[in-house]
Amino acid sequence: MRAAVCIALAVVAVAACACRIPEDPDGTLDRVEGGVMRVGITESDPWVELEGGVPTGGVEVRLVRRFARDLGARIEWVDGSEEELVDALKEGSLDLVIGGLTSKSRWKKDAAFTRPYVETTTVVGVPAGSSLPDDLDGVTVAAELGTEAEALVDAKTDADVRPVRDLGRAHGEPAAAHDYVLDDLGLAAGTELKEDKHVMAARLGENAFLVRLERFLLGRSEEIERMLRKEGRP
């Protein structure tokens, strides 16, 4: 019983003390606030768009810019491959990495992912009002050459895949595409091929920073989806 009282007191003491819960072991949030936030970026349309190593747009770039404004931080962009960036993040040379990461990413163990802040799906888009068989038997579906979607259409449906360089040119015909570009292609959602939960990566254990970022991202989903439809325009 005495031990239980001790534990209860410890919980209350920690909760009531002036300190912030959770705290960063390395003080990332304190350093970034009013200071510099080092953000690793890697090209991933429509999340991060780069030109010559400088971000020109993308949903995540815009979100991070806004987050930095909230913190009063200046951003130092560092571009590189995902692996380079995650390694740097793990060692503490970066504070945040973005680039279309999803909750299924293999970097899961090397970085602290935020809660998914938006979900996207890859679907077979069909012309609105058309009635196609559920298994899409005999239907020709356009898919971007060399993308995951191309293989997924083949594996999950009986459709014939037509690889194309640019989906934008296949306007109006059945195509495997992300849900956020369907409107622009003049299609309605059909068979779902894949679901992606998008996350950003913070440094492992820097929980105050992580929680601050998650609070920023959560509750913005509508806004983010709007942004996505705009940025994702083919």
Partner: peptide
Amino acid sequence: AERPPIGVIQLFGEEIWLG
């Protein structure tokens, strides 16, 4: 020296530290 990340969770519309 692997550091455990613990973020927030949304419960009943409130964001609470998962801890």
